[in-house]
Design a protein around this nucleic acid. Structure first.
Lengths: 208, 208
DNA sequence: CAAAATCTTGACCATTTGGTCAACCCAACG
DNA sequence: CGTTGGGTTGACCAAATGGTCAAGATTTTG
């Protein structure tokens, strides 16, 4: 008798309310971090009562964990897409562009991630070790092989990736500061050509 | 009758305990943000009782504000030091180095700042507008004049400064992630030559 | 359409949190 | 050596917080 867990397809209401809750929670966690966020805030933002929130999720932590799990996929995706068979410079510049687009399109996700890392990655460290680290090492290897083949200037691939992350995510994570300094509401106006130039000049092999 | 506020020099105990509290609060606020931090945590970390904390500071918010005010000075200093009369490339590279050293020496301050901006700068926006913005505009002007004189490659000074902030602060703010990926405890090993190369290649005027 | 299953919530609970206060400690000084 | 003033704290408080539960409202389904 298999008696496997009967999967029970989630109802329409389940789907709608789960999405609502996660969306509201993303707003709140992205701004206040895990400890600073409250269930009341989330319930309020979702337009549901607090007990109703707890009908769909076992607790505050599980909402946070669910968001972090969903985020991990989205977050790794642009790096996964980097193609070892493509043109080195093009591949890296396309990666920069994808990351910049993500900072513009998903600033809340970027801030959620930033908050989690700032706090020492208490809930994400296993994920980082299990999922991000292997991917990071693999892509560093690819970049290094491009360098060894003389197709890129000799720089440290690890710091290259850090610099790409830092410069792109900065526009989402430090958006409040940028909005004050540039006196605009547009997200990262003019960042695209700047970053393309920055990384082109870094990576073009010296021989020309 | 002048009756000015008698300044009353703070006693040795005052000085010692205020420092202790601010140091402990920096630890806690840097990790958990304003809302996520508790007075009990701060009292614990400072080795003082909670009522004693409140003997020295009027409340949680005032501790936070005091830290933020102190931070602002430290934070602007490296940029203030950029000398309009110096050699353009040298001045900017030296600024990068100062910022990187700060990320290494004052990671807690960097995270406190990052937390505040992530949350939308609720307590710092006035400071940013009043202190940082004029300095930012001034230094952008200087860099632009260097570009106009043909001494630097033509890039947007504003995004240059953002890139410097992003790449250097990243080593403090995302230290947890970097430690996982590089499998080391050292802060930002090998970042110095990488960043010097990154910004040298960006800024060297095309004419050579 | 009525029973069954799913969904929703007002009232409640224990704990945590920022903050108060009266009493107590203790070194300095006349 | 007793007084005085800064320094310290146990006990307490009201509000906020994560979470529970039994009872009702609504939807699904036989």
């Amino acid at each position: 008798m298999p008696d496997d867990a009967p999967p029970k397809a989630p109802s329409r209401i389940q789907l709608r309310n789960r999405r609502r809750i996660l969306d509201a929670a993303l707003d709140v966690f992205a701004v206040h971090g895990y400890r600073g966020a409250t269930l009341d805030q989330i319930a309020d933002a979702a337009g549901l009562s607090k007990p109703n929130i707890l009908y769909y999720f076992a607790g505050k932590e599980q909402i946070h964990v669910t968001l972090l799990n969903q985020l991990m996929e989205t977050w790794l995706d642009p790096l996964v897409e980097m193609d070892p068979g493509g043109d080195p410079l093009e591949e890296i510049l396309a990666y920069v562009q994808r990351k910049l687009d993500m900072a513009r399109d998903l600033p809340r996700e970027s801030r959620l991630f930033a908050n989690e890392i700032l706090q020492g990655a208490p809930r994400m460290a296993p994920h980082l070790k299990a999922d991000l680290k292997p991917l990071f090492d693999e892509k560093c290897g690819i970049i290094q092989s491009w360098i060894d083949a003389g197709k890129l200037a000799p720089i440290d691939p690890r710091h290259l990736i850090f610099a790409i992350w830092a410069t792109t995510q900065h526009y989402a994570d430090f958006g409040a500061q940028i909005r004050v300094l540039l006196d605009t509401d547009a997200p990262a106006p003019g960042a695209d050509p700047f970053l393309q130039t920055l990384f082109t000049n870094l990576l073009k092999p010296a021989g020309r």
